[in-house]
């Protein structure tokens, strides 16, 4: 039954799942705590423009998505801060603009775009070695920046007004955080695809928040939950012959719903809910 682990594609899939979980567990903790889920969804969808551009230029679509994702992260961050437009309006516009550009680029590209579907919905079973290396590099970058700016990220997420008052460059820190979200999205494209990225940024972190109010513990738990979802989903999709990305997400949603329901049941019976 565990013979499948002998296959190279399965080893790559597990490795990609593990590396993606590290990034999305850590960054997801900020996304959930700072309540920037919608802006993260916007960055994810806008980076589809980069996938299209990659096809059009004949370069790696993942590379295109990296550039496009970073660009749209900065564009969203700056437009929401510098103009008086409502934040959700700006996000909605850039979200659709990125996707539209992607569609146009793909339309302009001659020939058949073979694995377009896997960028949108993920296909963890087809991760090539080269992409695994890219994911590893991005993981190192994400971890390095979070380690360097841990106290700044925490301060800006918790109380941006106070952070500005005490002289922190809050806007630059916020933009850096959005760029890390963009990189995390790139890391996860193969695992769950652009459309469903937002689920892995929110479900593990939000579940982790149920058990702790300490940011570092929340990150660690969130990584752990993400690994559990990815591995369980991957196995289920293999055995049941279902789409891997979607199965990973549904696994997460079901576990999340169960945990919330059980905790609700326990607390309504008057038992104290213990927190770390």
């Amino acid at each position: 039954m565990f013979d499948i682990f002998g296959y190279h594609f399965m080893q790559n899939a597990l490795m990609a799942g593990l590396l993606a979980s590290v990034a999305c567990g850590i960054i997801g903790a900020y996304v959930v705590s700072k309540k920037i889920v919608f802006i993260s969804g916007g960055i994810a969808h806008a980076s589809f423009g980069g996938i299209g551009l990659g096809y059009f230029l004949g370069i790696s679509p993942v590379l295109g998505a990296t550039g496009f994702g970073l660009l749209s992260a900065i564009a969203m961050g700056l437009t929401t801060r510098k103009t008086k437009l409502p934040e959700d309006t700006v996000i909605g516009i850039l979200w659709a603009a990125g996707m539209a550009l992607g569609a146009i680029f793909i339309g302009l590209t001659p020939g058949y775009t073979t694995d377009l579907f896997s960028y949108l919905f993920g296909n963890i079973l087809t991760v090539p070695d080269s992409e695994l290396l890219l994911i590893l590099i991005l993981d190192v970058v994400i971890l390095g920046v979070v380690a360097l700016l841990y106290k700044e990220f925490l301060a800006v997420s918790f109380d941006e007004e106070y952070s500005t008052v005490i002289g922190m460059p809050t806007e630059k820190i916020y933009l850096t955080m959005l760029c890390l979200i963009a990189l995390t999205i790139v890391v996860m494209i193969r695992v769950v695809g652009i459309i469903m990225v937002i689920a892995l940024l929110t479900i593990p972190a939000s579940l982790a928040r149920q058990f702790t109010h300490n940011m570092k513990k929340m990150m660690a738990l969130s990584v752990l939950f993400s690994i559990i979802f990815t591995f369980t989903g991957l196995m289920l999709s293999y055995w049941l012959d279902l789409a891997s990305g979607a199965t990973i997400i549904i696994t997460g949603v079901v576990i999340f719903a169960l945990v919330i329901a059980i905790r609700k049941l326990i607390s309504s019976r008057g038992l104290p809910s213990k927190k770390m």
Binding site: K151, L154, A155, F158, D159, Y162, T212, H213, N214, M218
Partner: peptide
């Protein structure tokens, strides 16, 4: 927000 008194004070 997941922050305790200690971390908030350190800010």
């Amino acid at each position: 927000f997941p922050i305790d008194v200690w971390q908030a004070t350190l800010m």
